[in-house]
Structure formats: structure tokens, C-alpha cells
Nucleic acid binder design. Structure first.
Lengths: 346, 346
DNA sequence: CTGAAAGCGCTTACAG
DNA sequence: CTGAAAGCGCTTACAG
């Protein structure tokens, strides 16, 4: 056997029209009031022939592909890989297939992927938008294509989104450092205007302000380019130390920044938490193995993945639905890198 | 604008047949000898209207979806996530889109995913096959569907595959332990009949044999179930130690086993490499941060991903092509967990 | 150089 | 209860 079997083959084998076969195989026998026996014969024949419906033809006819696109920055980043897995599982519950793609924070790649997926007739998108891709999102919106942003969003753009409560998470993490006794706290972020990063910075600044610890005119923040190296992070740390020689703690804004940062600290031979206390946004398997297990912000990956799918599917089935904007709380996991075992999880 | 623009809309706007539009937009003007001016008008109009071809319709007509399925055990496992990324990038070079899916080592899930992807008319598959899924692979083969196995394969099954040279890699790693002076070496694997694991075990055994270190009738190997916990691994390590109280080194067969294993060792308070030397198959970001940086086998992820795509695409374009079976060398990255800094990378 | 027409594999009013 | 027919958006021989 080589040629694929179609509805027509079944119709011929049974001796009925393709319409009947279609009705039966889609369980619309009652609506179409198909005979009970003939329905069974059709079913049996389909099974015998090993019939597998052609979803492409189905989609072309119905205008629904039961498919959506998930565009992330990089599927090999554990944050996105885990998110993707949760999205995959949730989508499956609704009988949706997800097409993954990595845009590498590049608006050009992002646009290419959106085009590619649109041409494949995805019913909607879940996107962790790259910087400077706001116009792409707006274009999708204008074309009335269902979508939900994830991890990041654009201020003032009316869309669905599902994100971690970045501001509060950062605020809490920095407040924890303060509570534990640190007064001179720096922050390392990467260069971007994306809201999630701005919110993390804002959380950092406000926490300091509220504790009367923001004295200098310029906050103790350094940013590195998106494709930073360990050396870049090391340079940033050193620059902070120059800016404020009393710096005793650093808040890292992402898991990748932290990973490079820890290597840089090892390289510089600064001990955690004695020479420098650490707290970081997002997690990594590696944090468990650092000699001073890290205190970190655990993002709600499972809930984010699930909600994103649910919101998208709601939007697909009801294109006029109002926007859903979710900012989900994280959890601060307190361990040893801030220099205190006594503080408890809040 | 809401309704999608089709080739028909362009044809009407320009005042030609849809055939012409199709030829021009597919750059087949010379074959069809379309007029130069009219071709330009068609192109301009297409651009003006924001035309995006419907790939589904195209695929339905041509019988090629320019799509393939990638089925792995779990996309959130860094090994597969990295592999997936390399596959994605390589596929894109050939203008292919990849549909990812996770089968969780379950033959039932695997079959569901294969069906789903087949119905979506993928042109081929790249599969890290689950245990007991051999019949599924055979079915695909019988239906003449292009496919390449990755990471694992089935002995005696005539298919394309691209894997790490598991036997040699394991052999080298264990030989390294021996060279460094260890005589009583255990191995922790997970329970499966999949070839990659059998090969790793065989490499371990042969290395010991060749060095006259395999004395006991039963080799010093313990296996845990696929969904093992840290406690399972700890129990396995202890059992090995009971079996041979002189055990001084352990070879872990995967990255996940190693991660749980290291936590178990910490929990038991065994020091690496003094109480126990370690070498492991596959890598993890975490290994860099363990107090005794791990010696590990670095798998050729980039080459595996690339080759798999290339072999698949060759098979798609030439269904009669002979099978390509690649076993790619790994690299042993020597660091401190085996108890010697002197040994160099081989 | 260009158009009419068939067909990919489905679904779904419509008619009987 | 069942069939004939149109049509989703394309491609591609075929005829002129």
C-alpha cells in the first residue's frame, strides 16, 4: 500500500456517496440521519483501509487549521523550553497542534516567522515578542488574527497577554536583600525596551526608594547587549563596583545573565554571599549546584503556559472577546546566596 | 480588511486568469512565457493587496507540505531542546517548517503523535523513538514515509539514523576512569531496551573487560525506572556500594541521572572525587557549578541536528535513496570529577 | 503569450 | 435516509 486512502475510496468500497462517509466519520450521523447499519459499515471499512483524514483538505474547507504558532526567543533556553512544553500539553487537551519557532530577539526573524505561520493558516499566535516588533503585532491585530503575548507585552497596546508580575517580583526580591541587611545593591540587566525588563528595573528602583536606599542620581544598574558574553557581565559587575565601592549585593535580571555572572564571580574570586550577595530572576537547574545555592524568583511557568493557551482558544472561538491581561505572581525561593538562612519564604 | 486575499482577487484586479497569477507568483513566467509588463503588474498588485499564499491549498494540490515532524521524549529536557533548536535552524535553510512534539517515552503517545502529524501531511519524520515503538516505525516505513531516527534506533531495522557513537563514547569515558587509577567502577542507567542505552552499557563493560577489571559475574550496574526520583538514584548508588564496598567511581548514563545523582551524593555527604569519582554521559549547564566540575561526554548536538535534517530531506526528495546510518563521535571533556587534573582531553 | 478547466480531499447546504 | 454539486485556494497540463 502506498497511495493514501481518501474518503472517496471508502465511498466506492461501500457503495455510497462521499457525503455520507464524511458525515459518519465526523459523527454527524444524527444530524444527517444516516442509517445505523450503513454507518457501521462505513466505519468498519474506514478502519480496514486504514483511513487517515487529510487535515489540510479539512482545514482548507473549514477555514480552521486547529493549529497555532508559538514564537519564542530561543527554544533551547530552558525558560522557553519549559514554557513550550506546558503550552504543548495544554494545547493537546484542546486538540490543537502547536508550531514552535525561535526568533532570537530579532524583529526580522520574527516577521519572517509570522509570515510563514500565517501562510500555514494557523488559527492564532502565542508570541514572546522581540524588541521592535510592536508593528508586527499591530498588523496581526488589525487583521483580526487571535493572539496572546507571553512573557513580555507592549505598553498601551490592546492585546491579550500573560506574564509574570515582573514589577512585584523584582520589588520583592530586592526587598528581601534589604531585609537581610544589604544597603548597596546593584542590578545587571540586558539592554532592551521590552516591558518585562523595564518592569524589573522599576521594581528594583522602587524597592530601594521605599527603603530610602536610593541616594545616587544614577541608579546602580548596568546593562549588557542581548548577546552578551561572560566577559561582558564581568565588566558590568566591575563597573558597578567602581560606581559604588560599597556594593555588597547584585540582582540579576535573567537566568542567562546569572549563569554568566556566577562564572564571572568565580573568575574574579568573589565569594557568595560574603563578598557579594546574589538574587536572580528566573531559575536554572545549575543554581542548585552552586556552592551557595541561589535565592531566586520562580516564575509561574505552568500557569503561564496553560493560561496563554486557554486565552488564545477563547479568542479563537470568539473573535470579539475582550482582552485578557494576566500578570501572575511568582514565588521568591530563599536559600543561601543572600547571606541569611533565617529569612523565610514570603 | 479582514477577508484574506486570494489569487482570484489578484486575477480580478488585474484582469487576467488565476493561472497567470500563479505562474508569476511562483516565478514560472519564462516556462509559461508570461508577458513582462503584465507580470510586473501582477506582482505589484499582489504586494498592494498584501497577498499571502495559502500553503494549505498549495500543499493539497502539490502533495508536499514542506513540513516535517520532530518527535522527541521531552522538549523541556535540555538535550532535546538543544537538538530541536539545531533541527529548526537547519530545516529553515531548506525552507522547511518543523512540528515538534513530546512523546514522554510512551508508545501510546508516540503513536498518537505520529497519527496526528501524518494527518497533517508532514513530508517526513525525525524521531527519537520511544521504547516499544518499533512497530510504529515499521508501519511508517511500509507506507514509504521518509524518516530518520535520532539519538536511538532499533537493531536490525533498516532505517536512516543519526546517533552519538554510544558504545565508543562510553568505552572512552570508562577507560578514562581506569587510566586515572580507578578499579572499582559502577554504572547507573535507566531501564530500557533502547539501543543507545544498551550500547552505553556495553561500552562500560567492554572497557572493564579490556582492562581485566571485570571480575564479578554480575557487572556493577543498577538501573532505575524512566521516571526516577532522586531517592531512586540514591538507592541505586547505595545498592552498588553494597554489591562492591570498594566502589570508588560511578559512570552515569544520562544528564538527568547525573543531576539527581549529584544531589543524592550531596545528601549522602559523599565527596567528589575523593569518596567517589564521577563521569557522565551528556552535559548540563549545572555541571560547571558543581564544586568539582564534572568530566562528561559532550554529544555532537549540532552535527546530529544538521545531519538528521539533511538525511531526511534527501530521503524526501529521493524516496528510493539508500539508508544513511551515522554514528557521530562525541568528545570527552575532562575536568575534575575523576580525581585527576593531569589527564588531557583525548 | 493567455485562458478555461480539472482536480487535490474534504464539508455542507440543498433537494429529493 | 441518501446523493449530486459547489467550493475552499491553489497548480498545471492542455489548447489556442
Amino acid at each position: 500500500m502506498n497511495k493514501k486512502v481518501s474518503i472517496k475510496d471508502i465511498a466506492q468500497a461501500v457503495g455510497v456517496s462521499t457525503a455520507l462517509v464524511s458525515y459518519v466519520l465526523n459523527n454527524k450521523e444524527k444530524e444527517a440521519r444516516v442509517g445505523k447499519e450503513i454507518a457501521q459499515v462505513i466505519r468498519d471499512t474506514a478502519a480496514d483501509l486504514g483511513y487517515q483524514p487529510n487535515q489540510l483538505a479539512k482545514s482548507l474547507k473549514t477555514g480552521k487549521s486547529h493549529t497555532f504558532g508559538l514564537i519564542v526567543a530561543d527554544i533551547s533556553n530552558p525558560f522557553f523550553a519549559n514554557l513550550a512544553r506546558n503550552v504543548e500539553d495544554e494545547a493537546q487537551k484542546f486538540n490543537y497542534t502547536v508550531l514552535f519557532a525561535s526568533a532570537d530577539e530579532s524583529p526580522k526573524k520574527s516577521q519572517n516567522l509570522i509570515n510563514m505561520l500565517t501562510e500555514r493558516q494557523v488559527d492564532g499566535f502565542i508570541i514572546a515578542p522581540a524588541e521592535n516588533s510592536q508593528n508586527q503585532i499591530e498588523a496581526l491585530l488589525k487583521n483580526n488574527i487571535p493572539l496572546v503575548l507571553i512573557d513580555r507585552y507592549f505598553k498601551g497596546l490592546e492585546t491579550n497577554y500573560v506574564v509574570t508580575n515582573n514589577y512585584e517580583s523584582a520589588y520583592n526580591a530586592v526587598s528581601h536583600l534589604i531585609k537581610v541587611g544589604h544597603k548597596h545593591i546593584g542590578m545587571i540587566a540586558y539592554k532592551t525596551d521590552l516591558v518585562h525588563m523595564l518592569e524589573r528595573k522599576r521594581g528594583y528602583i522602587e524597592a530601594l526608594k521605599d527603603h530610602k536606599l536610593l541616594k545616587a542620581k544614577t541608579p546602580l544598574i548596568k546593562t549588557v547587549d542581548f548577546d552578551f558574553t561572560q566577559d561582558d557581565v564581568e565588566a558590568a559587575i566591575k563597573a558597578l563596583k567602581v560606581q559604588n565601592p560599597k556594593m555588597e549585593a547584585v540582582f540579576f535580571a535573567t537566568n542567562t545573565l546569572t549563569l554568566k555572572g556566577l562564572k564571572a564571580l568565580n573568575n574574579m574570586n568573589w565569594k557568595v554571599p560574603d563578598d557579594i550577595a546574589i538574587v536572580c530572576f528566573d531559575e536554572s537547574e545549575a543554581f542548585d549546584f552552586f556552592y551557595s545555592p541561589l535565592t531566586y524568583i520562580e516564575q509561574p511557568l505552568l500557569e503561564m503556559g496553560r493560561k496563554a493557551v486557554q486565552v488564545l482558544i477563547k479568542n479563537i472561538s470568539d473573535k470579539k472577546s475582550t482582552h485578557t491581561q494576566l500578570s501572575i505572581p511568582s514565588k521568591l525561593i530563599v536559600r543561601q546566596s543572600c547571606g541569611s538562612d533565617k529569612a523565610e519564604v514570603r
